[in-house]
Design a protein around this nucleic acid. Structure first.
Lengths: 330, 330
DNA sequence: ATTAGCACTCATAAAATATTAGTGCCAGGA
DNA sequence: TCCTGGCACTAATATTTTATGAGTGCTAAT
């Protein structure tokens, strides 16, 4: 990337900021008022910026809007990681300083707050099932035939399943649970199905009546374990953004957000810092930007993301995410 | 309601059916082709039906569309509870005959199928917190300071919360849990907070160290218990319906669907049969219809609902819901 | 009672016109 | 060489005009 002149940087920044604010192509006149030179000069510079691939026009005589590359340049070079404004900070502080709340609730609540403040959607992704180790399973009988199996992982992820077992005595179930807790606690969740087969199946065959049925039931319970906790807040905020005023666009975005694989792809890279995926990079929609970071606090770890229009308040969102991460990690 | 002539009934039914199919106002010509009389005759009858408040026009010279009252008349008097078509039936059978699945999973899966087949959203509402009795609580320690509290109700509803307790010994926690399980199991969830105060607080004061902290923690756990399990499937289906092609409409519907109170109102009446709430009656949007029924199978009970445009395939949906209810209840 | 016929209405689409915010480029001045 | 005022030009947007057509209500004849 060829370096731009000082003035070009200033112009680009002004255009991006302005476009983010109003969602309308930015003309040379407006910029010339903010910089002390004529609109013709600005127009000349705009041509250079367009040649560099940083700006685009919506039609031959329109003002300019930032290209994807333009946003990228803005994020990497121009944007000043603006301090969080006092009001935003205060609202988050209230959540963070609530000692009653467990970490996961603090995260959910604060993302709710952020979503309301910014009008963007927010996401928490928990750790994946191969990072979660089985801590303990519990069984609670409900009636003659059904019972609840509860799985707790070392990261505090809990999942439960209602199972039906005909003609199986509760004692036998408890024996099986005891064996699982003793023999395979500590195993990554996604390896449990196989471990059950090779380490539990042979043993319960000896000690436990109805072992077939029991084995099958537990096999399914672990096999169905959701491999990742996903929590989206404020999906509907997209409906307030002008670039998503048409239903086809909305449908695309909402379908992508329901698709676990898409969300999964957000946390793929291992970078620990804040990362920005602009437009097509988001894998969601060319008009969507995702800003994410990983967090880790003791056992709990995962990914936070803010998802909004490409025309997003990058500086504000980045500083909020930084603030979140800091607060979560201590 | 004044009775209509045979022919008027036929005409009204044809208009509603046609409008449901194509979402376009229905003209006299089309109807005259299906009945053996002239379009002028049909027009005269249409005037009567409009006078009776059963039909409406979108403008002075447009065809007719059913009014809310018209839909109501159709549902109550005209609609023939159409047998389910073979294909629909087959797809649902596959889910119902899967012996592996617990009832709650069968319900979720089949509603998913129905949503895909019909392009409408579906909802399951569990029983409310005053109908759920505490069955058992369990505690799983995660690390020095945090642990998971799991609440299981007699209806098989499970909820968990991550709590933090500084300087509290695990034994003390277990003692408290034991007391709760012995003394207040069987209490409706929404009465537990008060019972904790009057029956547990005085006792743990004697037996348990750090009783203040423990009491507070458990108090919050029960207080935060979600008072109802709500599961919406296929919310996005609304985006495929022509009457929801504008974002304001979508925003309204989606916001209402996120609002627990609105969904709660669906299950208010105690009628055990299938009920149809048309348009404004739905409390969601004048273009939305909700069709619901209660179900009960042993301990598990709740409400099923299908939510779609007012221009809904009433006969098909009613027969599907009937079928669901039957299959769930045995 | 039914219906053919006809004037009338209004939504929808296409074409014509005006307005305006913006552009690119040129030629003259610092 | 860089900057700027001036000007012709472009295309989106809005407004008006005109045409088309699917539908109606009403009347008079069957």
């Amino acid at each position: 990337m060829q370096l731009l002149t000082d003035r070009q940087n200033k112009i680009l920044k002004l255009i991006v900021d302005q476009y983010i604010k109003l969602a309308k192509p930015v003309g040379s006149n407006l910029i010339s008022k903010k910089l002390k030179c004529s609109s013709a000069t600005i127009r000349n510079e705009m041509v250079s910026l367009e040649d560099a691939g940083l700006l685009e026009k919506t039609h031959t005589s329109s003002g300019r809007i930032p290209s994807e590359k333009g946003y990228r340049y803005y994020v990497d070079n121009l944007m000043e990681p603006k301090k969080m404004n006092g009001e935003d900070m205060l609202k988050l502080q209230i959540v963070f300083h609530n000692q009653q709340l467990a970490l996961s609730d603090v995260i959910t609540k604060s993302l709710q707050v952020i979503s309301d403040m910014t009008n963007y959607a927010t996401v928490v992704l928990g750790s994946t099932s191969h990072e979660n180790l089985l801590k303990q399973i519990e069984v609670v009988p409900i009636d003659d035939v059904s019972m609840i199996v509860i799985i707790v992982t070392d990261k505090g992820h809990v999942e439960h399943k209602n199972i039906r077992l005909q003609d199986v005595e509760l004692d036998e179930v408890k024996k099986t649970v005891g064996l699982i807790n003793n023999l395979i606690a500590g195993t990554p969740i996604d390896e449990i199905s196989t471990k059950l087969e090779y380490e539990i199946k042979p043993i319960i065959g000896k000690y436990v009546k109805q072992h077939e049925q029991l084995y099958n039931a537990f096999y399914h319970v672990f096999n169905d374990f959701t491999n990742q906790e996903v929590n989206i807040v404020g999906r509907n905020k997209f409906l307030n953004q002008p670039e998503f005023s048409n239903v086809d666009k909305i449908r695309n975005v909402f379908n992508k957000l329901e698709n676990k694989e898409v969300l999964h792809s957000i946390e793929e890279d291992d970078d620990n810092n804040i990362k920005v995926y602009i437009g097509k990079e988001s894998n969601i929609d060319e008009d969507v930007t995702v800003i994410k970071t990983k967090f880790k606090n003791g056992a709990e770890e995962g990914t936070l993301a803010i998802i909004g229009p490409k025309r997003m308040e990058y500086d504000r969102v980045v500083s909020m995410l930084e603030y979140m991460k800091e607060n979560i990690e201590r």
